[in-house]
Design a protein around this nucleic acid. Sequence first.
DNA 1: AATACATATGAACATATGTTCATATGAGGT
DNA 2: ACCTCATATGAACATATGTTCATATGTATT
Lengths: 118, 118
Amino acid sequence: MMNQNEVCKEFQTHPDVIEAARNDLLSNVEYEYMSVLFKMVSDPTRLKIINALFDRELCVCDLMVLTGMSQSSISHQLSKLKQTRLVKSDKRGKNVYYTLKDEHVRQIFRQALEHARE
Amino acid sequence: MMNQNEVCKEFQTHPDVIEAARNDLLSNVEYEYMSVLFKMVSDPTRLKIINALFDRELCVCDLMVLTGMSQSSISHQLSKLKQTRLVKSDKRGKNVYYTLKDEHVRQIFRQALEHARE
DNA sequence: AATACATATGAACATATGTTCATATGAGGT
DNA sequence: ACCTCATATGAACATATGTTCATATGTATT
């Protein structure tokens, strides 16, 4: 049995490498922003929505049909995507039309798809 | 008050656009794989780990020092990253050295960082 | 104004996820 | 063999997240 305090005493790590790595570290705020973005694209329902919106605008009903999810679920997810500025909405008549807003999302989506297909 | 069955009757959506979108849809398996990848990079602790490992191999103790997280937490996270094949490990002596394994992760990380910095 | 439809939203619920704590495993030094 | 150190891991716990249900909001249509 051992105490956490006794783990990894300074001289047993790799100080030179740690120093080099430390220069590459980002701020906690940056990690948090990245985390938020990735959380948004880490749910299959939202991925379907993003995929469907990739090249066109769609209303909520269109998205219901395409994803097979309930109206409420789609609305909740669109709400989150909007809060995090990944989509924007345009209300016209009774419908609300959504489009992708962030080009990084497209890039990230494409990369992940390549990864998935390996 | 209205019933879900009454929502979005076929003719009130946009059949032509839906048809176009349907051709772009992926399989559920693909969405799941993408989801798994994004979940892995959606936690700040794992993002720190990935960032630290970006250009070098590090042992668990190095990662503890760099991230300020407990040994147990780091080990659990590395275990997940290994299961999803984002890192690989190399045991040498008492230490286990980790490196990034997937080039897509680097690309995705860079894109997300750009996004975060806007 | 009354109704029908499209969308939004709060509350409740179940599940997933990350951290900690305690302890196990395994390698090196003595 | 024994001890120390580095790492792994199971269980418990708290928090976050996604879906559903019920209902609210807002825009046309009659």
